[in-house]
Amino acid sequence: MSDTTLTFLIMDAPFEQARTTTAFRMMEAALEKGYNVNVFAYEGGVSLSFALQQPHANAVHGRTFEEEQHPLTREWIAALHKKAQEKGLVFDWVNCGLCVDERGVNEAIDGCRRGGPRDFLGWANQSNSLVIGTR
């Protein structure tokens, strides 16, 4: 178990902003360094773990469904969960419950749970944190 834990808050919905990709790159780098990672998904960020995200083919790219390998954030989260597990690290993902309800994205992938701002405050009291606001 690592002694170092980093906490992130992420607000942007998937497929909207470069900040999403950058945030995931930070999480990957943190796990690679051997740090535990907490993520609080707020507002649009709760859709990142939505289990019903589906990939698509892309006729403009001339690629089939299989060839396109369309990125899905739910798969990125699942992959980071797996990486953390293999390295004996914590990767804890909490979705803001009220934000989930108002968007109707209750079906989150395994390993992601509901919570609220107090979860984030608890983490921030114990670890260095970075808020990734939206613009």
Binding site: A30, K33, N128
Partner: peptide, 18 residues
Amino acid sequence: VEISSVVEAMATGTKTMW
């Protein structure tokens, strides 16, 4: 630099702001 610069700073307690 690589993106790991961010998490290395956070890990050492640096005040990190986006």
